[in-house]
Write a protein that binds this DNA or RNA. Structure first.
Lengths: 344, 344
DNA sequence: TTGTAGGCGTTATCAC
DNA sequence: GTGATAACGCCTACAA
């Protein structure tokens, strides 16, 4: 039992409204001043009756606008990521764009495949939290395809793209000086492997800088730990290294992001350590569970939603005018004080 | 400074390879047996050189396949949702599809707009966690557009669509009998407003059934609380109602999902209640933080990733053959025992 | 204000 | 095996 006409096209609307395709097209394009009120009304009515929806594929083929924005992120399962996407989506919707979301899993190969795929779909813009392994590809996309690309979170020095990030250096600095003011003598910094990821790198070196500012040979200059979370035993080992060598001093831990923070917290629990009695704790990001763990975890909040919004706004801006100079927008973070690092 | 040719089309490839468009098209379509090995090789080479990517818009216009799958969910910010999307994405990628992700925020109006938008993009299939307010629209999409639609999580009785869900009734039953076995005498069930959302409804009534099975006039038949989380004070009020009227008995709380679970936990902490000493606790979903809160929260885990995978598999199946009868796949849940309901 | 006539990049149906 | 050629549904000059 078929419904009405299988597919209704602009031609069907035109016919039924007794006008030509171009006229309907004008209506669709919002060029109302070129149409008589009567025609407008008639077209509107027919569109409603027929439940006509313009075909974006056809539209895009002609106008070379797909109204699709690619969002290529490391991991959509990470709340940090979804918050950003949420911001991006709201702006998209407002402007008639849709988001094509892909996960690279931090694998350059996967990222590359997705870039190709997105290119096929003729995306009008790309939001990317890049693995850093496909600069050549991205440059081609940007130059040949003229596709606006905006980097989020992770920047790439050699690429001349707009970037939205946070002031990572400032953020760690603030964290460190907060802990030092609270009289913690040893501060362990735990991060996922720094590799070539700019935010991890900036936080890592920022941490060192901050310590040196206080004391050029601060003992915690050796309390930096990169841990690969895929390796089950690594975290425990490094955590114990830190805990055992600082057992007699007031100490605190900074987690480089909320993923590793959660792992650390669970490990600490397993081993019977209490926050903040046995060790102070402070985490990057401000995950929803921060208030529910121990007596609340002090965190460094990023304006994630705003970041996503801004990315899309930059893309839209370039879509309107691609000539403005490349810019990097760096947001300040906010330290949310809870009870996990009350001082000693 | 322009790169090479701005856009490279099938025609450019054909010209450079010294063949016709049709031949290249055959190659792209994977019909290798219709091509001489020499031609194949030549085309492959030229494609690489030119970095040619077929234009999906044109391809879709002709073949009426967009290779786009719509994913219309309530809230991408909810970890439950992203886990499902992750499963869906992996299947998509494997088959050359991309995911167009949209948030309805549980608002039928927004959902409706997105359905229209997705229709415009000529999606080849739709994964939807529906608000329930757009059955007419969905039916049109399915009938006229012949677009396979699969409902996730929430079903709609009047719609003849494939559905993937969990056995909600079974899940609560298991939870309740677990708590009763642990000797809890009063069990409070907290849920977001049930309204017309099938999983919430099934859990709600399942809870009642489970109690009646034990005792047709079980006192906790009145311990059901629907709370609107947008109203700041509501949760606190209802929570206190329950806590005060059960203060002298062994009691536990079941949270209908991880969102409300977290809110309850935070409220309990604020007011100085301890889990499990002051009240047992058990939550639907198995959020990442479950192990980090108090001494671990006992949860009902859903196979979220698998659910997403299954949805996409159903869509693909219908894309290949739309004649098979409508089916509902219902997954069993798993109770993950931690320390939040050890019994009294 | 409205209609006519291409053409966007593919695929598919013919011939050769 | 391969090559012309006509759609697909829409947009945009250019005419009227």
């Amino acid at each position: 039992m078929r419904g009405k006409e299988a597919k209704v096209t602009i031609y069907d609307v035109a016919k039924k409204a007794g006008v030509s395709k171009s006229t309907v097209s004008r209506y669709l394009g919002g060029r109302f001043h070129e149409l008589s009120p009567k025609t407008q009304q008639k077209i509107k009515q027919v569109i409603d009756e027929l439940q006509y929806r313009p075909n974006n594929l056809a539209r895009g083929l002609k106008s070379s606008r797909s109204y699709l924005i690619g969002a290529l992120v490391a991991d959509i399962t990470n709340p940090y990521t979804t918050a950003i996407l949420r911001g991006a989506e709201d702006v998209c919707k407002q402007h008639g764009y849709s988001l094509l979301i892909c996960n690279s899993d931090n694998q350059p190969a996967k990222e590359r495949e997705y870039i190709s795929m997105l290119q096929s779909h003729k995306i009008d813009g790309l939001l990317i939290q890049t693995t850093g392994g496909n600069s050549d590809f991205l440059e081609t996309l940007s130059e040949n395809g003229k596709t606006p690309i905006v980097l989020v979170d992770r920047k790439i020095p050699e690429l001349p793209f707009d970037t939205v990030e946070i002031d990572n250096r400032g953020a760690v600095m603030q964290a460190v000086s907060y802990l030092i003011k609270k009289n913690y003598k040893r501060i362990g910094y735990f991060t996922e492997p720094v590799a070539h990821f700019s935010p991890r790198h900036e936080r890592y070196t920022g941490f060192q800088e901050a310590l040196r500012l206080v004391n050029p040979s601060h003992p915690s200059l050796e309390d930096l730990f990169e841990v690969d979370l895929n390796d089950e035993s690594q975290l425990e080992k490094k955590l114990n290294t830190f805990l055992s060598r600082t057992s007699k001093e007031p100490r605190a831990i900074i987690a480089g992001n909320s993923v590793i923070a959660l792992k650390i917290i669970i490990k600490l629990k397993e081993q019977g350590y209490k926050i903040p009695d046995d060790t102070g704790f402070l985490s990057f990001d401000n995950p929803e569970w921060a208030a529910a763990v121990f007596s609340g975890i002090t965190t460094i909040e990023q304006p994630t939603y705003q970041i996503g919004k801004t990315v899309m706004e930059l893309i839209l801006k370039r879509l309107a005018d691609n000539e403005s100079p490349v810019q990097t927008i760096s947001y300040q973070t906010r330290l949310i004080e809870r009870e996990s690092a009350p001082g000693r």
